[in-house]
């Protein structure tokens, strides 16, 4: 189901390459409204967030613990890479019990024409075909993009133990990005979430996806495909709108790991090297329900 994963070394290289491209895109995008002379640093708020995150991780997580989580987030990223190769929105996840991966999933919404086939559903469908439901009470989820409201509720109903994710989803995140389904009052047990693990890499994969889609089919694309593939836009995945309680949110950030370049260092080096036309980044389609026009 997961195909052949790349070895670690080449994987890292690929991430670095895609990081450069993705950051260039991100950088150009966010700088459109900024001053042209300010091209050596990312937006100020971005910088500040990283500092905060770095501060949190040093307090909240010992290096060994961090390495443990990053190991599984890399596996989730590998699943997202696989989704990218399958023309799916690159979101991937793994479920981990006792330090062992018991399930993997990636987004399958495009190929199934089903807008609910998110990575978390796909992975759990695999897990529960071999194991009892209550195993999820001792299982953690690692997912590259914050679970949406739907998945956040599903995970809570199943009684997931904890959720670790990469970037936030400001379009319909359910664990801090938009709503706090994991911790709101409910008949189900709440679960802790930790966001920001390899956040840039998760965002870069999404950016890569939009570039890839644009290169493949510059214009007119089938409506259904186009809309499906823009369900998470690059600009939607930066930071939470609402902040969950500090007790359950321990942001971590790869910027402090040293293994992956920081946003600012890459942006500075990549910005001048890669020229990307503005049109390569799709703008958010303004979704309107049919009821509004009828």
């Amino acid at each position: 189901m997961i195909g052949t994963l790349r070895g670690k070394e080449s994987w890292t290289t690929l991430v670095l390459a895609s990081a450069a491209l993705g950051l260039a895109l991100y950088y150009l995008h966010t700088q459109q409204s900024a001053t042209p002379t300010d091209d050596k640093s990312p937006p100020a708020d971005e910088e500040q967030r990283q500092d905060e995150d770095a501060h949190h991780i040093s307090n909240a997580m010992a290096p060994a613990e961090r390495a443990y989580h990053e190991r599984f987030m890399r596996e989730a990223i590998a699943m997202a890479e696989l989704a990218l190769k399958s023309d799916e929105t690159p979101v991937g996840c793994v479920f981990v019990k006792d330090g062992e991966i018991i399930g993997r999933g990636m987004n399958e919404t495009n190929r199934t024409l089903n807008g609910t086939r998110h990575a978390e559903f796909v992975a759990i469908a695999g897990i529960l075909s071999k194991r009892p439901i209550n195993i999820l009470n001792e299982t953690d989820l690692y997912v590259t993009v914050e679970p949406c409201v739907m998945c956040a509720s599903m995970l809570r109903q199943y009684g997931i133990r904890a959720v670790y994710f990469g970037c936030w989803n400001e379009r319909f995140g359910g664990t801090g990005g938009v709503l706090n389904i994991h911790s709101d009052p409910s008949v189900d047990k709440p679960y802790p979430v930790t966001g920001g693990i390899f956040r840039e890499e998760a965002i870069m994969l999404l950016r890569k996806f939009y570039v890839q889609e644009n290169e493949k089919a510059p214009e007119p694309k089938q409506k259904k495909t186009r809309e499906l593939k823009t369900e998470i836009l690059p600009m939607d995945v930066h930071q939470p709108k609402s902040t969950p309680s500090p007790a359950i949110r321990m942001p971590v950030n790869s910027a402090s790991t040293g293994s992956i370049p920081t946003l600012s260092s890459l942006a500075a080096s990549a910005a001048s090297a890669v020229a990307v036309p503005k049109a390569a980044i799709p703008s958010a389609p303004q979704s309107r329900p049919t009821t509004a026009r009828g």
């Binding site: 807008g115 609910t116 949406c148 409201v149 739907m150 509720s153 599903m154 319909f172 329900p289 009821t291």
Partner: peptide
């Protein structure tokens, strides 16, 4: 439920 309400939203139902 919340999960299904969001599934309805993801699926762009009309009413």
């Amino acid at each position: 439920c919340v999960m299904c309400s969001m599934a309805i939203l993801h699926s762009r139902f009309r009413r």
